[in-house]
């Protein structure tokens, strides 16, 4: 492996890592908001409805960013 190739690999690693960290931050933020929403509307009937978007968003982030589901149909992963 040449020196140039190692540099390219490190750059790729840095980019891929950053994408993962950003996804993790999004999940963490959504989890905290989810927790806050739960405490705000704890005894309200629409709590499940209010929390559902957070579950769906977090699930999709994991499927897309971490599990690369789009690679199944030829996405860029």
């Amino acid at each position: 492996m040449t020196t140039e190739q190692v540099v390219v690999d490190r750059e790729g690693f840095r980019k891929a890592s950053r994408a993962g960290v950003i996804a993790a931050i999004w999940i963490a933020v959504l989890t905290l908001i989810e927790f806050l929403v739960f405490h705000l509307f704890e005894y309200d009937w629409f709590l499940t409805l209010a929390l559902l978007p957070f579950v769906i968003a977090k699930g999709w982030i994991i499927l897309d960013a971490f599990m690369h589901i789009r690679a199944l149909w030829g996405g860029d992963h």
Binding site: S17, G20, V21, A23, A24, I27, A28, I62, A65, F66
Partner: peptide, 9 residues
Amino acid sequence: LASSISAFM
């Protein structure tokens, strides 16, 4: 969640 990011890394 932290374990998931370390797994990704």
